[in-house]
Simulated scan of single mutants.
Amino acid sequence: MATSFLILAVFALTCSLGIASDHGPLQDFCVAMPNSPVIVNGVACKDPKLAHANDFFFSGLNKPGNTSNPVGSRVTPVNVAKIPGLNTLGISMVRIDFAPWGINPPHTHPRATEILTVLEGTLYVGFVTSNPDNRLITKVLQKGDVFVFPEGLIHFQRNAGYGNAIAIAALSSQNPGVITIANAVFGSNAPISDDVLVKAFQVDKNVVDYLQSQFWMSN
């Protein structure tokens, strides 16, 4: 009886881990049909007989993003919204351009692990482990170096050089999502109550009001 229970417990745990990210496909492909009236967890498929090469194609990742903004970086995503054929395949990618000393601010991807490769320049990168340790793990990356940011953890990248930097990253979801921490906390719509933020950050109300009055750019 105990053995049967143990086998059942292991099976249940394996199943729960198996659905932690995007579901695996049950067919060759499922080209997204964004305007479908059918609402599903993802995007409804169009008839596979109508699929064509452009459903699996994106052009332009060779073009640098405009980094003339307050954070000095630009993320160019290639997800299911850009390539309909990514639907149900559980992957996507981004190009990240950095001006000198530009940053990709602390953020999380709620549905994906990220693996990043530096194409040009030098990046200082890191992530923070979950409670209670909140340990900062960082590394300086050079051209050709690769670094992994585990799913859901707060992470960042900063150009550590005087020239432009470029990175490309793959993510384990067709639509990984992004939550930029400063934007979410101080730029939410509607604003989070001052009382909550004053207590949470242990700062004066004037500091909270100042931060909430700033323009928080989505990257």
Score class of each variant (00 low, 15 high):
Gln157His: 11
Gln157Tyr: 11
Gln157Pro: 12
Arg158Lys: 15
Arg158Trp: 14
Arg158Gln: 15
Asn159Gln: 11
Asn159Pro: 08
Ala160Ile: 12
Ala160Pro: 06
Ala160Gln: 13
Ala160Leu: 07
Ala160Asn: 12
Gly161Arg: 07
Gly161Ile: 05
Gly161Asp: 04
Gly161Pro: 10
Tyr162Ser: 11
Tyr162Arg: 08
Gly163Arg: 10
Gly163Lys: 14
Gly163Tyr: 11
Asn164Cys: 02
Asn164Asp: 12
Ala165Ile: 03
Ala165Pro: 05
Ile166Asp: 08
Ala167Ile: 05
Ala167Gln: 04
Ile168Leu: 05
Ile168Gly: 05
Ile168Gln: 07
Ala169Gly: 09
Ala169Asn: 08
Ala169Met: 10
Ala169Cys: 08
Ala170His: 10
Ala170Val: 13
Leu171Cys: 09
Leu171Gln: 09
Leu171Tyr: 06
Leu171Lys: 10
Ser172Glu: 13
Ser172Trp: 14
Ser172Pro: 12
Ser172Cys: 14
Ser172Leu: 13
Ser173Arg: 10
Ser173Trp: 09
Ser173Pro: 08
Ser173Leu: 04
Asn175Arg: 10
Asn175Met: 11
Pro176Met: 06
Gly177Trp: 11
Val178Ala: 15
Val178Gly: 14
Ile179Glu: 09
Ile179Asn: 12
Ile179Asp: 11
Thr180His: 11
Thr180Phe: 13
Thr180Val: 15
Ile181Asp: 11
Ile181Pro: 04
Ala182His: 14
Ala182Val: 08
Ala182Phe: 13
Asn183Asp: 15
Ala184Glu: 12
Ala184Thr: 15
Val185Phe: 01
Val185Trp: 03
Val185Pro: 00
Val185Glu: 00
Phe186Gln: 06
Phe186Lys: 04
Phe186Ser: 04
Gly187Trp: 07
Gly187Tyr: 04
Gly187Leu: 06
Gly187Glu: 05
Gly187Ala: 05
Ser188Phe: 07
Ser188Val: 03
Asn189Thr: 15
Asn189Tyr: 13
Ala190Tyr: 10
Ala190Pro: 13
Ala190Met: 13
Ala190Ser: 07
Pro191Glu: 08
Ile192Tyr: 09
Ile192His: 02
Ile192Thr: 01
Ser193Ile: 02
Ser193Cys: 02
Ser193Glu: 03
Ser193Ala: 09
Asp194Lys: 06
Asp194Leu: 03
Asp194Asn: 14
Asp195Thr: 02
Val196Arg: 00
Val196His: 00
Leu197Asp: 00
Leu197Pro: 03
Val198Gln: 00
Val198Ser: 02
Val198Asp: 01
Val198Pro: 00
Lys199Val: 00
Lys199Met: 04
Ala200Ile: 02
Ala200Arg: 01
Phe201Asn: 01
Phe201Leu: 05
Phe201Arg: 02
Phe201Glu: 05
Phe201Val: 03
Gln202Gly: 01
Gln202Ala: 13
Gln202Met: 04
Gln202Leu: 08
Val203Glu: 00
Val203Asn: 01
Val203Thr: 10
Asp204Asn: 12
Asp204His: 05
Asp204Arg: 02
Asp204Cys: 02
Lys205Val: 07
Lys205Arg: 10
Lys205Met: 03
Lys205Ile: 04
Lys205Ser: 09
Lys205Trp: 01
